[in-house]
Structure formats: C-alpha cells, structure tokens
C-alpha cells in the first residue's frame, strides 16, 4: 500500500485529503523539519501557509530530501491564484492543488501523481546497463568512490532538482542527450577526490570543469560499448548548467531514463534520452 506524508496539515486539511484518497493509501502526518526523510513515501502533501517565503523554503528542503527520487510534492490550500502557484512550482512543488476544486478532479489529480514511472524493458536495459556500469567505473577510477546503483525508470516530465548538471549531446546513428546532475556539496567532494586535494581547495570553476569531464567520460566509455547497436552515437563537447531547480530540455519524442545512484550520504542522477536509429 502506498504511504502519503502530510506535512503541517491542519485537522481540516487532513480530513479533506483522507476523504479524497480513501482507503487505498496509508496516510501519516508530521510537522515540517529542516531535514526530513521522504524515501519511503509515495507523495508528500504540504499545506500552504500565509508566509509564502517560508513555504517556498519548505518546498526546497523537501525536494532536496527526495534525493532525486520522483516523489510528488503537492502544495494544498483552500484556494490559489495564478501568481501564487508559479513560485511553488519553481521551488520544486509538483502541483499546487486548491481544495475548493471539485473533489472528483482533486482525487484524479492526486491519484495520477501516484502512478510510478515506467520501468525499462529488457531491450532498454541492454543500453542502460552500460551507462550504469560506466558511471560506477568513472567514479571508482577517477575519484576512488564507490557508487551504488539504486533504481531506474522512465519519465518524460521529471524535473531534476540538483545544483549542477553536466550535459552532453549525442548525434550520429542515434540522437539525444546524457545528463549527470549533482548536489553542489557532492560535486565538490567528487572533484576534490579526483584531484586529491581538500574540498576547500576546489573552486566553482574546477567544479564546473570536473562535472563536464565526468559526463564526458561516462558518455565516451559507453559509446564504445554501443558500437554495432542502434544506440551508437557520436559525442558533442560537454556543457555545464548551474543553479537550483534548473531543467534540462530533451529532444521531443524521446523517453528519458532516470538512473539514480547513491554515494555516501548523498545521491546523484543520470538522465539518458536516446532516440535509436
């Protein structure tokens, strides 16, 4: 059974959500804490407060707590106007749901977000396994870090909320993009370990450069593995995007595989979107 976490929800809101979702889910309630663990929940629901600045900070904290997992964060309230909704979405909320909307619509929206991402088919795992193995090898050889593969699923609308992404375009027989997204602290640690220096000796420029090189090595080593398959590609030069909540555009009609890894107490994500020949 799916479990939903209600955060800072009033008894009235708790009652409303319980009535909407009924017996199909287990509902737990808690108060907001700066560091929360959302890993065992299918959804987090937060009640909006009058202090929007605080609410936005809550959403950002919850999004970090997801550790790149595609856990819907729903902001609920009596009603929202358009000007209120946009900042919530930008901060990492999946939806701002006004409970003055018809209950049937609210129920459908909430249930829709609880449908998990599509699992890869056997054929798709054949090329994804190379990315998983090579990500492990790159971090092991270059930074002496043990990376643990956690999960992979397909999603066309997953918004990656990390701090820095290395992006490499694929062209040739197949086309697409491969992206590695990290939280800033993990990116700094990886680059420091690669260079064998203390973390405080690694500046922003070196982090940008190093993240670009990491995605270059992951994609480059995978390219060799895919020779002779419909997924073989040529590489562009890597580029790097920095900033909380940035989104990466992928070519239209390409399914995006999201591969999640754990390293130490942190996590990072590789997105692979390949349109085969």
């Amino acid at each position: 059974m799916s479990t939903i976490l209600l955060i800072d929800c009033s008894p009235k809101m708790t009652q409303a959500v319980t009535e909407l979702l009924g017996d199909n889910v287990e509902i737990k309630s808690t108060v907001f804490e700066e560091k929360m663990n959302l890993s065992s929940y299918s959804m987090a629901i937060l009640e909006s407060s009058d202090d929007q600045k605080y609410a936005l900070q809550q959403i950002r904290n919850l999004r970090y707590a997801c550790n790149f997992r595609d856990i819907p964060i729903i902001m609920v309230g009596e009603s929202f106007n358009n000007a209120q909704i946009q900042p919530y979405i930008m901060a990492g909320a999946t939806e701002a749901l006004p409970l003055d909307a018809p209950p049937v619509a609210c129920r459908q929206i909430l249930q829709g977000y609880m449908i998990p991402g599509r699992q890869p088919m056997e054929e798709e795992m054949k090329y994804l396994n190379h990315f998983i193995k090579n990500t492990h090898t790159v971090l092991k050889k270059m930074a002496k870090m043990e990376v643990i593969f956690k999960e992979v699923y397909f999603s066309n609308d997953f918004r990656i909320f990390g701090d820095i992404s290395g992006i490499i375009g694929l062209s040739g027989e197949s086309e697409g993009t491969v992206v590695a997204t990290f939280y800033w602290t993990l990116a700094r640690e990886i680059i420091a370990r690669m260079m064998n220096v203390q973390k405080d000796q690694v500046n922003s420029e070196l982090i940008h450069d190093g993240v670009g090189e990491i995605i270059n090595m992951i994609a480059g080593s995978t390219k060799k593995n895919l020779v002779g398959t419909p997924y073989h590609f040529e590489l562009s030069l890597p580029s790097v995007v920095v900033g909380y909540g940035h989104q990466i555009g992928h070519p239209e009609s390409v399914s995006i595989a999201v591969i999640l890894f754990e390293v130490g107490h942190s996590a990072f994500a590789i997105q692979v979107g390949i349109k085969p020949d």
Binding site: M217, G220, K223, K224, V227
Partner: peptide, 25 residues
Amino acid sequence: STESEESKISKVYEAGAAGYLAKPF
C-alpha cells in the same frame, strides 16, 4: 581520450602515436 572505439584507436596509431590510454584512468 574518452574516444575508445577500435576504429578511433587505429587512427591514432596510424598517425604515429606511441600509445593510447582511455579515460577514465
């Protein structure tokens, strides 16, 4: 280099390289 396909490595040796090492290393 990250270029590690056999066909690419052959080009490097044909051009006169003394050796080749694939990234990551």
